[in-house]
Simulated scan of single mutants.
Amino acid sequence: MSIDWNRRTCARRGHTTYRPHEAHLEAKLHASTALGAAWRCLRCGDFVLGEPHGSGPAAGAPLVPRGKVLRDLFLLRFLAVERALRGVFVVLAALAVWQFSNSQDAVRQFFDKNLDVVRPIAVHFHYDLDHSPIVDTIRKTFGYKHSTLMVVAALLLAYALVEIVEGVGLWMSKRWAEYLAVVATAAFLPLEIYELTEKVSWLKIATLVINILAVLYIAIGKRLFGLRGGRAAFDEERRSASLLEVETSAGMPTPAHNG
Rank of each mutant, 00 (worst) to 15 (best):
V97S: 04
G87L: 03
V97Y: 03
L129E: 00
A94W: 00
R119V: 01
Y144R: 12
D105F: 04
I121M: 12
D72C: 05
V91A: 09
R175G: 00
V162L: 10
L49G: 12
L76P: 00
R108F: 03
A93Y: 14
P133Q: 06
T141A: 09
H53S: 10
N102R: 14
W176A: 06
V162G: 07
Y127I: 14
F125I: 15
P133C: 06
W171A: 15
S55F: 09
D128L: 04
D130S: 14
S132K: 06
L63N: 08
T141I: 08
D116R: 15
F125P: 04
A154V: 11
Y127E: 14
L73W: 09
L85G: 10
F111N: 03
S132P: 03
G67V: 05
A158P: 05
L95K: 10
V162M: 09
V97L: 07
A160E: 02
V91M: 11
H53Q: 15
K68C: 07
V69D: 13
W98N: 07
V64L: 01
M150E: 14
A153W: 01
V165T: 08
D136P: 00
D105W: 01
M172L: 15
S173L: 10
D116V: 14
M172W: 12
L79C: 09
N114C: 10
Q99I: 06
L70D: 02
R86C: 13
R83P: 06
L157W: 02
L170D: 01
Q109Y: 08
Y127P: 05
D130G: 11
A106T: 08
D105Y: 04
V135Q: 03
H126V: 14
E51Y: 08
V69W: 05
K113M: 14
F74T: 08
H126L: 13
A61P: 02
K113G: 14
V168Y: 04
A153Y: 01
M150I: 12
L85Q: 13
S101L: 00
G54I: 01
E82S: 11
A154D: 08
L156F: 07
P120S: 10
L92D: 12
W98C: 08
E163R: 13
L92V: 11
P52R: 02
D128E: 10
P62S: 05
E51D: 13
Q109H: 10
R66V: 08
L149V: 07
L155P: 05
F125H: 15
Y159R: 10
T148N: 08
A84R: 10
I134W: 06
M150L: 14
G50L: 04
D136S: 11
V81K: 07
K145A: 12
V91W: 06
L129G: 02
M150S: 11
L85T: 15
T148Y: 07
Y159S: 15
S173C: 06
G54H: 00
K68P: 06
L76M: 10
